[in-house]
Design a protein around this nucleic acid. Structure first.
Length: 911
DNA sequence: GCTTCGCATGGAA
DNA sequence: GTTCCATGCGAAG
């Protein structure tokens, strides 16, 4: 192989960044630059364009005849709002309309707005002390909560949010394709446009741009009829108020074509029309597109699913306005980072429109705002780009450790690989832990089958199983791939969808009663048990989170599928997780709003009235055990005043005012001012609040948006996530327990369901099982561990095994003799391991898919006695699962099988 | 005998 | 009819 001395290519002739100019640019010793690009660099302009730009006349000069001009609500000045050049020169007003930068500065004290070229609002500005004093534009509606501190100052976030929604709405195949068809039928459309020139002015923009700027990127304006239902929900049928839908606001959306090779048949762009922005080329995956011509707004991920973030009101939006915490998503990034694939794996940029549009809807990301915020908790300057998600199949969740990736998604969002061996891929989970997978493919029917290998540790760490959903997102500009997950509920349980188990990010859902008597036997977590701020509490990060919808009165408790699902064989082709169920998940996700972490959930649990605890001493520690499960009360905040006086603050269910109540007050979950018996002056919703929001913010840490607390919480987020995950897992288990035993129509999340199996295993249970972290969480006890817990577990299991062994021997004595140590499943043919139970009768049971029918029960019974199977998929091999529940003998679950198996090992190891 | 790897198969979309 | 993808299954380690 001969090496050819490659002569360096001559430096390309640089031309003006303004695509309407294309004059050659000269090296500028003074580093004079144009507008700032997303990459962090600045547009390189020719002298003339630079001069025009510096004079602030760029838009007038080059965009004067395009749409997007609006008038400042305050001074009436004409401001262009449709391009990257002008994006920093106006502020979107919540109530619609814009203010020019000068007015914004003047009115809102926008001192933190940076000089032209800096298009980000620093996060500090989001909590500018003057924010609450902002006033709405004259003549605009003045909703009560508007101009809350964070609202206005999150203009960039608002824009970002809107843009995301628009991008998503538009980019959905069903949406974009429809419109692109309209574009293609341009002749008829234009004729129609001439007849309705004014109304359709914006729709003509794309065609006009195409004609005027043949080298420009493809542009497609969003027609009113492409407005998705979500947009209509928020902005009304005509889209008024939405910048992108406002007829005076030409919201252009740019589609990037792979390799600059646009295909009009697939993306609606004329040949040769592509985004040639080198920063885009370096991106690699979906993400924030930018129009280098300076006449289009950047667009975030086309796959963003805005179901959650679109919810507003009552502070429920995932955005910053409700929480006081900044929505950690920004449209622009200081640097233009590439995707993981590009940076780490050297992929080529991909994600053409065709690939995106061909991604099946079931893989569309449905990340909630909370999830996104959770993912993005570490960086306020990052853009979270939901890529796709996938419900785990049995194969994916199995111990084989291979996660089959949807082909289109893999090709669209992951690095390009040419060899089957693929590439190592570093993926971060929501807690920041990095996992290394092998991204590869198998040749398959002249195609490829993409898999992620080595996912078992991650899957196990997340305690995922078939039916759960993993989500893939990317954080830009870091380019990190982030893998999240949502737990499934009970897809196979056949639960009526109006009842308990709707699958929402793995949160069980149930309707709630209006009142929850403390002594009720159906105590349930109230839908309003936590204030809106809480939902966005950054401490609520973590996988184990309960969602409580304030709107719908639903409580969603994270849960694993109930035992029936866990243990049930997953039918091939995922038929048990059919499309219908998946769609149900989609719809019911809308009911999920708030998150609780475990500590907070715990804090809601109150000792039932008239219940005297029995004190149990375990390992020197006293535990109170209640025969009755705890009562769920209203969330309150305990505050100690400067005088040392302690009391609680609680938010009224109806008027949302905060009231002070005695520290020992136990409040109904739907507490209202009328129940404020301690302060008659404030026992009505019409009574004024005792403290202002600011004062409350000082009193109640971070709940009401204290900025300093938030930063602290960031540092604690990982730990909090772990705690939350652990705790909610337990809560989830309780929910499962409740579900499995609740009466028809009762709430699955009800913690107040009696059980005869093990009355302790309920909320508040302090038994040796419940005080331990859930399975798979926390440090594992070694098999040789001699701690009190382990010894107790051993002792219990030894007793159980002996009892069972005796029982079984009695049964076997009447059975015909069979092969003593080996059984073979009649259906699965799975490998069966022999187990020596040391003195027990040899019992070995196939743990593979079980034959249906009564045999299952027998077999399960056998399993629970204690078998070790070769195909055990437990992540806890050779480790003690301290969450085993020996008394719950009737319950069928793989975990229980594992637990039993583990117990056998314990017995083996026991002294 | 068990696990891992890689391809093949076939149901479903 | 084609493509996708869940998983079966044989070969290799």
């Amino acid at each position: 192989m001969t090496s050819v001395a490659a002569s360096p290519p001559p430096p390309p002739q640089r031309t003006c960044f303004n695509s309407l100019c294309k004059e050659p640019t000269k090296p500028d010793p003074q580093r004079r630059r144009g507008w700032r690009l997303r990459s962090g660099e600045y547009a390189e302009l020719c002298d003339r364009c630079l001069c025009i730009f510096e004079q602030g006349n760029f838009c007038e000069t080059f965009h004067s005849d395009v749409a997007g001009w609006r008038s400042c609500e305050n001074c009436g000045k004409r401001v262009h709002c449709g391009c990257i050049v002008s994006v920093q020169s106006f502020v979107l007003l919540d109530a619609g309309g814009i203010d020019c930068l000068a007015c914004a500065r003047k009115i809102f004290g926008m001192c933190t707005i940076q000089a032209p070229g800096a298009i980000w609002f620093p996060s500090s500005s989001m909590h500018h002390p003057r924010m609450p004093t902002m006033r709405p534009p004259a003549g605009t509606p003045f909703p009560g909560h508007w101009r809350q501190a964070s609202n206005l100052w999150n203009t960039s976030s608002v824009q970002s949010d809107l843009q995301q929604r628009l991008a998503f709405e538009f980019d959905r195949p069903s949406c974009s394709e429809k419109y692109l068809q309209q574009v293609r039928a341009s002749a008829a459309l234009q004729q129609h446009q001439h007849q309705h020139q004014h109304h359709h002015q914006q729709q003509q923009v794309p065609d006009k741009k195409f004609e005027e700027m043949p080298e420009r990127s493809g542009v497609s304006a969003l027609p009113p009829n492409s407005m998705g239902p979500i947009m209509r929900e928020k902005f009304g049928a005509n889209g008024a108020g939405a910048p992108g839908l406002d007829p005076a606001y030409p919201y252009s959306i740019y589609h990037r074509a792979e390799g600059g090779n646009s295909n009009p048949s697939t993306n609606g762009l004329p040949h040769g029309h592509h985004i040639s922005d080198p920063s885009v080329e370096s991106h690699g995956s979906s993400g924030v597109y930018r129009d280098e011509s300076g006449s289009g707004l950047p667009v975030l991920s086309p796959t963003f699913q805005p179901k959650e973030s679109i919810r507003v009101g009552h502070g429920q939006t995932s955005g910053p306005s409700s929480s006081g915490s900044p929505m950690k998503q920004q449209l622009f990034s200081p640097t233009d980072g590439g995707g993981v694939g590009d940076i780490r794996n050297g992929s080529r940029p991909r994600l053409d429109m065709r690939a995106r549009s061909q991604v099946l809807p079931r893989y569309w990301p449905r990340s909630t705002g909370q999830e996104l915020q959770q993912i993005n908790g570490e960086s306020s300057n990052s853009v979270i780009i939901p890529l796709f998600e996938k419900m785990l199949s049995a194969s994916d969740a199995g111990r084989i450790g291979r996660l089959v990736l949807p082909k289109k998604c893999a090709e669209a969002y992951f690095p390009a690989i040419s060899q089957p061996e693929g590439l190592p891929l570093t993926v971060q989970d929501a807690s920041g832990k990095e996992w290394q997978f092998q991204f590869r493919f198998w040749p398959n029917n002249n195609s490829r089958m993409y898999v992620l290998e080595g996912v078992t540790p991650c899957i196990q760490a997340m305690q995922l199983q078939a039916g759960d959903t993993v989500t893939f997102s990317r954080i830009d500009p870091e380019g990190k791939l982030v893998m999240g997950f949502r737990k499934a509920s009970t897809p196979g349980s056949g639960e009526p969808e109006t009842h308990h188990l709707k699958s929402n990010n793995g949160f069980l859902t149930c309707p709630l009663p209006d009142n929850i008597p403390k002594t009720s036997t159906s105590d349930q977590i109230d839908s309003n048990v936590n204030p809106p701020e809480w939902s966005n509490n950054p401490e609520n990060k973590g996988s184990g989170l309960a969602h409580v919808s304030q709107e719908g009165g639903f409580v969603n408790l994270m849960s694993k599928p109930p035992p029936s699902v866990q243990a049930g064989p997953v039918k091939r082709k995922g038929s048990s997780l059919g499309a219908k169920i998946k769609r149900l998940k989609i719809e019911t996700e809308e009911s999920m709003e708030l998150k609780l972490n475990w500590e907070e959930a715990q804090s809601l649990l109150r000792a039932p009235s008239n219940s005297v605890p029995s004190v149990t001493v375990i390992d020197g520690n006293e535990f109170e055990e209640f025969e009755e499960p705890p009562v769920v009360g209203r969330r309150t905040y305990f505050v100690t005043s400067q005088t040392g006086e302690r009391h609680q603050w609680v938010q009224c269910e109806e008027c949302t005012k905060w009231r002070k109540v005695p520290v020992d007050a136990l409040l109904n979950a739907k507490w209202t001012c009328s129940q404020n018996i301690w302060d008659p002056d404030r026992s009505s919703c019409s009574s004024p609040a005792e403290l202002t929001v600011e004062q409350l913010a000082e009193l109640i840490p971070y709940r009401t948006g204290g900025g300093t607390k938030r930063s602290k919480l960031k540092h604690e987020s990982s730990e909090a996530a772990i705690r939350a995950s652990e705790g909610l897992d337990t809560l989830a288990n309780l929910a499962i327990l409740g579900e499995s035993e609740s009466l028809p129509g009762s709430c699955v999340a009800s913690p107040h369901v009696q059980t005869t199996r093990h009355p302790r295993h309920r909320p508040g249970c302090s038994c040796i099982v419940c005080i331990q972290p859930p399975s798979g969480k926390g440090p594992k006890h070694k098999s040789t561990c001699t701690c009190n817990v382990c010894n107790t577990v051993r002792r219990r299991f030894r007793t159980l095994m002996l009892r069972r062994g005796d029982k079984r021997q009695g049964e076997n004595s009447s059975d015909p003799p069979t092969a003593p140590t080996k059984l073979m499943s009649s259906q699965s043919g799975a490998i069966v391991a022999d187990v020596d139970l040391k003195g027990q009768s040899g019992i070995a049971v196939d743990a593979g898919p079980s034959p249906s029918g009564t045999a299952v029960a027998d077999e399960v019974s056998e399993r629970r006695i204690g078998t070790v199977t070769a195909s055990s998929s437990s992540p806890l091999k050779a480790q003690i699962d301290l969450n085993i529940q020996p008394e719950k003998e009737e319950e069928i679950s793989p975990k229980s099988v594992t637990a039993s198996a583990t117990a056998v090992k314990l017995i083996d190891d026991a002294p």
